[in-house]
């Protein structure tokens, strides 16, 4: 398991939207994700609601349980506490915003139970 975050979460990283527009990671808005997914043939945005946040045996990690999509499928992910998720209408959020800001310089809100995160699924999945 990786103990570092991917480079694209670092403040200032250049992100290309589906229409070709370039934005910095910290400037992304909910609409950017929604519009990019609309253009995509394969991917669609799902709403994933945070149901539980539990500590993990892995140091500095948490286990987040999401309720995904209209069928409310239960999905668990283990991530580092500083891993940022994009919350609808709120923006980047992590379990430990101070650490995210310290490591990535990315401003974050606190990720809490009930938050609705942007996630992806395949359009063809039925």
């Amino acid at each position: 398991p990786s103990s570092t975050l991917p480079p694209y979460f670092m403040k200032g990283s250049i992100i290309q939207l589906a229409d070709g527009e370039l934005k910095r990671v910290e400037d992304l808005r909910t609409e950017d994700f929604l519009q990019s997914a609309e253009v995509s043939r394969e991917l669609k945005i799902d709403s994933s609601t945070v149901e539980r946040i539990d500590s993990s045996k892995t140091p500095d990690a948490v286990i987040i349980q999401f309720s995904v999509g209209e069928h409310k499928a239960q999905v668990c992910v283990e991530v580092l506490v500083e891993y940022p998720f994009f919350v609808f209408g709120q923006g980047w959020s992590s379990c430990c915003p101070d650490r995210t800001t310290q490591l990535l310089a990315l401003s974050c809100a606190k990720l809490s139970v009930g938050d609705v995160c942007i996630s992806l699924t395949l359009k063809s999945l039925r």
Binding site: Y8, S13, I14, I15, D46, V68, F86, T121
Partner: peptide, 19 residues
Amino acid sequence: VPVFPWHSLVPFLAPTQSD
């Protein structure tokens, strides 16, 4: 300067299909 695609920022949370 590296450019990253938007979808790399979003977790892929695929539920296992049971039907």
